Simulated assay, not measured.
Amino acid sequence: MMLDRLRVVDWEDDDAVFDHAPSRAALMREYHRRMAHWARAFNAEAYWPFFDIVQRIDPAFTLSDDFRTELDDYLGENVGWPSVARTCRGAVNWAEFRAGTEIALPELEDPYEPLLVMYERGGSFTVESEFIDLTGIAVSIKPLSAYLLPDPIVQLDPAVLDALDESVG
């Protein structure tokens, strides 16, 4: 369950933020790449990059009241950053939607997985006017078109990400 996965994220691990700064930046860029393709596929470019793709695919989709309350409580107690909370909510909606939908979806990579891996490697981010602050490293904000790349920016394999962190450190 996606909410259980979020519950194990240590949002306050300052050491991991710095230890994994290079891989976290690459994961943020990979999230942008994947979400750019999803945004293009569902005419959601105006909402990119931090949005709930499920609401663009099926606006009628909702979580059960109990589950939504549980998610709201978790986010309210643990995630104070609006863009992070929005992506966590999007990831949970995505997981629940995918598990029960019969809507035909394009063959695109999971839009939220890079961010989830980034969270697991050291918490959150904040959005500034010209960059995304990952604490320890920043990612410049580029237009959606800059991310419509066919190939991944980084593989999500832990060994690849660890090697990236070690090569810079």
Rank of each mutant, 00 (worst) to 15 (best):
L3N: 09
L3W: 10
L3Y: 12
D4N: 14
D4Q: 11
D4W: 12
R5V: 15
R7C: 13
V8M: 08
V9S: 07
V9T: 07
V9G: 05
V9R: 04
V9Q: 10
V9K: 05
D10E: 12
D10L: 04
D10P: 01
W11V: 09
E12C: 00
E12I: 07
D13S: 07
D13F: 02
D15A: 09
D15Q: 08
A16R: 07
A16H: 05
A16F: 07
A16G: 11
A16S: 15
V17G: 05
F18A: 06
F18R: 11
D19L: 09
D19N: 10
H20V: 01
H20L: 01
H20Y: 03
R24A: 04
A26N: 03
L27S: 02
L27H: 00
R34Y: 11
M35F: 01
M35L: 08
H37Y: 00
W38N: 12
A39G: 11
A39Y: 01
A39N: 06
R40F: 02
R40Q: 10
A41I: 06
A41D: 01
F42S: 08
N43G: 14
E45P: 09
A46H: 07
W48Q: 05
P49A: 15
P49F: 05
F51P: 02
D52A: 06
D52R: 03
I53S: 12
I53E: 03
V54E: 03
V54C: 07
Q55E: 14
R56D: 00
I57D: 12
P59K: 02
P59A: 09
A60R: 13
F61P: 04
S64Y: 01
S64N: 04
S64F: 00
D65F: 11
F67L: 13
T69I: 10
D72A: 13
Y74M: 00
Y74R: 00
L75H: 04
G76R: 07
E77T: 04
N78W: 01
V79T: 03
G80H: 00
W81I: 15
W81R: 00
W81Q: 08
S83A: 13
V84L: 05
V84P: 00
A85T: 03
T87Y: 10
T87N: 10
C88L: 02
C88P: 03
R89H: 13
R89C: 05
G90Q: 10
A91P: 02
A91G: 12
A91Y: 02
W94E: 01
A95S: 14
E96K: 13
E96G: 06
E96A: 14
F97T: 13
F97W: 05
A99S: 13
A99N: 14
A99K: 14
G100D: 15
E102R: 14
E102C: 07
E102A: 12
E102D: 15
I103V: 13
A104D: 13
L105F: 06
P106K: 10
P106D: 02
L108K: 01
E109N: 06
E109K: 09
E109I: 09
E109F: 12
D110A: 11
E113G: 07
P114M: 10
P114T: 14
V117W: 04
M118F: 15
M118Q: 12
Y119I: 02
E120Q: 13
E120M: 10
E120V: 09
E120K: 03
R121G: 05
R121T: 12
R121Y: 15
R121H: 14
R121V: 11
